[in-house]
Design a protein around this nucleic acid. Structure first.
Length: 420
RNA sequence: GCUGAGGUAGCCAAGUCCGGACUACGGCGCCAGCCUUGAGAGCUGGUGGUGCUCGUCACCACGGGAGUUCGAAUCUCCCCCUCAGCGCCA
């Protein structure tokens, strides 16, 4: 959520940011209109309430006659207060809705563009791997080696789910442990949050109300299956005022994530887009003026994962038209999948500035006597498992259809060197 | 799941039966000032949010919501959470 003061005080900045993102201006113009009315109403309401409060204190001190008269007057006044309040409530509801539909302002360093075609490739790691045979896709490899079972995933759950078996399951576990150990060395504190999260947390990070259709919902208890550890981990500090010496806070978390992908046809074969996947997530809470530097180090921390795995990758700086709603600046890390001949997004590292913190009410104080301010939050995948698995399987395949285990993972797999 | 006790400011906690000087008692912590060579003690003030006319301003905030009332921390209804005991259970 944007600071309403920014929209009020510098509407031109917000207007330009919406144009750059390719958003239409309806909500924005409506905000300006409604915000004025909202403030006028608050003002009038407060005036009347002040009078009511004052008279309510006078009444017990008065004689019978005067008392009866004043109570009569107050009854009328109270009715007006109620009218104003109910109008306030409805305007406030609309105002909040509008605010929730205005995206974050892209940082000045974000390139202006209309779609992912305008994203800027910041760097390539190396050449993609060249094969002297036709590389197989991970689903072909997975089925041949009996380490990915799509049919049985569908049987026990539904289509879009899969089961890892044998060394496939073990490779997944090795990847998770490797990532967690790496992030520990990078200075992150490991968190293992809840898989089920409540409605309030989903609002806090902005999954609700916009992405409701994309989440699995447990009706009996009104809980949601975690769509990304960003939600529970960021909300660890919701409604808190942190002290400055706690910052920066760096968390990493391994957690299964669930997405209904409603409305999206899961056409891609394989495990590139599935309903349940593992992910290691990095989350930071930082002092505002340091957040852009923290974005760079966050990216480096995630990048190190693909580097150490020896995967060909590239870094993209998303343009205004491709930037996520809540983000002010985002880098994507894409690993190459030679079997599919595609670049796969394995990580998305974003700086949200105070956009999330304002919603989740995460504040800090520079000194005990100073006013609290919103922290800046950042997060990035460190990294998403299925697509990493794809890139590992397809890059490390051999001519005879086996998969070499990347050197860095062998210790995590009891010294096993290949899947055969 | 059942029964009971609770939820008041950063923390502890009075007030709730019986609505009105609650401007939410008191304490702890923290901040500022005074005092002091310094520290401590002591004293004074401050210690959540929003709005604007930026003030010794106004409004809001006693788990959340709705209601009754001129007036609600206090009364009524609904919901949430915590703790204890019992039950069930990996």
């Amino acid at each position: 959520m944007l600071d309403p003061k920014i929209i009020r005080e510098d509407p031109e900045l917000v207007r330009q940011s919406l144009v750059n993102r390719g958003f239409d201006l309806t909500y924005f113009e409506r905000f300006l209109e409604i915000d004025n009315r909202w403030r006028a109403l608050i003002d009038e309401g407060n005036r009347l309430k002040a009078q009511r409060n004052k008279c309510a204190q006078e009444i017990p001190k008065l004689g019978e006659e005067e008392k009866r008269k004043l109570i009569g007057e107050m009854r009328t006044l109270s009715e007006r207060v109620q009218q104003i309040e109910s109008e306030e409530v409805s305007i406030e509801k609309e105002r909040d809705e509008i605010l929730q539909n205005i995206p974050n302002i892209p940082h000045v360093s974000v390139p202006v563009g209309s779609s992912d075609a305008d994203d800027v490739i910041v760097r390539y790691s190396s050449e993609v791997r060249k094969f002297d045979f036709k590389p197989l896709s991970h689903w072909e490899l997975g089925e041949r080696l009996d380490i990915i079972d799509f049919e049985r995933g569908t049987k026990i759950a539904m289509s879009g789910f899969y089961v890892l078996k044998g060394l496939g399951a073990r490779l997944e576990r090795a990847l998770i442990n490797f990532m967690l150990d790496l992030h520990l060395k990078q200075g992150y504190k490991e968190i293992f949050p809840t898989v089920l999260i409540n409605e309030k947390s989903c609002f806090g990070t902005g999954q609700l109300p916009k992405m409701k259709e994309d989440m699995y919902h447990i009706e009996a208890d009104n809980l949601f299956l975690n769509p990304t550890a960003e939600v529970p981990v960021t909300n660890l500090h919701s409604d808190e005022i942190l002290s400055i010496d706690q910052l920066p806070i760096l968390y990493d978390a391994y957690l299964p994530s669930f997405r209904r992908e409603a409305g999206k046809h899961i056409e891609t074969k394989g495990i590139g887009r599935v309903h349940q996947f593992n992910k290691v997530e990095l989350v930071k809470f930082v002092v505002p003026e340091t957040s852009m530097d923290h974005l760079e180090s966050l990216l480096k921390n995630a990048e190190e994962v693909v580097q150490l795995l020896g995967l060909p990758y590239r870094i993209k700086l998303l343009c205004t038209g491709d930037l996520g709603f809540h983000s002010a600046k985002t880098y994507d890390i894409e690993a190459h999948a030679p079997g599919m001949d595609q670049w796969l997004e394995v990580s998305s590292c974003s700086n949200f500035l105070d956009f999330q913190a304002r919603r989740a009410m995460i504040k800090f104080r520079r000194a005990p006597h100073l006013k609290s301010e919103f922290v800046h939050t950042l997060n990035g995948s460190g990294i998403a498992l299925p697509r990493t698995m794809i890139s590992v399987m397809e890059n490390y395949q051999t001519r005879d259809g086996l998969i070499e285990i990347p050197a860095i993972l062998r210790n995590y797999m009891g010294g096993i060197e290949r899947i055969e």
